[in-house]
Design a protein around this nucleic acid. Structure first.
Length: 287
DNA sequence: AAGGTCTCCAACCGCATCTAC
DNA sequence: CGTAGATGCGGTTGGAGACCT
């Protein structure tokens, strides 16, 4: 019908302040619904979808806009992603003030960062351009092709989760980074033997050995767990974590709770080539 | 200082699901 | 019960600014 004409009048791209005001006014009057009526009434030339998205992601009250993820939030996302897969809306529901888009963006940049990290650590020249962090490094002398996958199917079964974890592979071995909290206490890595056994996936079984290393995460402190510091040459690493306190999540207190925006990003505080110090395969593969 | 690269994030798209008629 | 429109969700993209050489 007049679809063509309608299309002509659909506005896209960045929102103007005036548009935001109109949208806010609409929500104030009618609540966060009837998005399509905004356009049909001629209030805005945006689609209902666009209006809803703008409201949900930017205009909703109590959003933590422009505020980086706190360490606690990062930890929660990592845990929940492991548990639910890429169910960003679900994960966001555990994080007040965060949207699915926030979580999604956080996760994808984290994935990219990790990919780069592993790539860097695998390259023989360790001359990473972005090295804010020092840490002289032992660079593994073997080439390590890396790969990531993020699964969205991890929701129901326990199987696929191993595919959603970052891992480094080479011809001899698979190195997986698993959140430490997911390991049973008896499985948690200790300093000497940073090694846990888990059921091998079919994918893994073609490899000679599989190494699970604790991914930078918050360990449970109520055990005699010790963080595998020897793996990292940064001995004041814990300085960035702040004092121990009880967390509202009933989990282990680890970080100063929400000094929110002030806290530096978790991974930013790790040397980018921290995995350079992972021993070459021959040293730790289980015999 | 300039140009290249990287990171972050807002917003779009397509598909799935829900709801009203 | 089927259909159309509305809404929700996850993946992806592109631009702006930060950072590096």
């Amino acid at each position: 019908m007049h679809g063509k004409k309608d299309q002509e009048h659909v506005r896209k791209g960045p929102w103007k302040t005036e548009e935001d005001e109109v949208l806010l006014h609409h929500v104030k009057k009618y609540g966060p619904r009837d998005w399509s009526s905004i356009r049909s009434k001629g209030l805005l030339q945006r689609t209902g979808k666009s209006c809803r998205l703008r409201w949900v992601n930017k205009l909703r009250p109590n959003l933590k806009n422009g505020c980086k993820f706190t360490i606690e939030e990062e930890r929660i996302v990592i845990e929940l992603q492991e548990q639910f897969g890429n169910k960003w809306a679900k994960i966001a529901s555990y994080l007040p003030g965060r949207t699915d888009n926030d979580v999604k963006n956080f996760w994808s940049s984290r994935q990219k960062r990790l990919a780069r990290l592993l790539k860097t650590s695998s390259s023989t020249t360790s001359k990473s351009h972005k090295n804010k962090a020092k840490v002289s490094s032992h660079v593994p002398s073997y080439e390590v092709p890396y790969k990531f996958s993020s699964s969205s199917e991890g929701e129901t079964s326990s199987k696929p989760q191993s595919y959603s974890l970052p891992c480094i592979e080479n011809s001899d071995q698979v190195i997986k980074m698993v959140p430490l909290l997911d390991l049973k206490k008896s499985e948690q890595p200790c300093f000497d033997e940073n090694y846990v056994e888990q059921e091998l996936t079919p994918f893994d079984q073609s490899y000679k050995s599989t190494e699970y290393i604790g991914f930078p995460q918050i360990p449970e402190l109520d055990t005699d767990f010790t963080f595998p510091m020897e793996r990292v040459d940064e001995h004041n690493l814990f300085d960035v974590f702040g004092p121990l306190e009880t967390s509202e999540f009933g989990m282990v207190p680890f970080f100063e709770p929400s000094e929110s925006c002030k806290i530096d990003r978790f991974f930013d505080d790790f040397p980018e080539d921290m995995f350079d110090n992972i021993e070459p395969p021959s040293n730790f593969s289980k015999l």
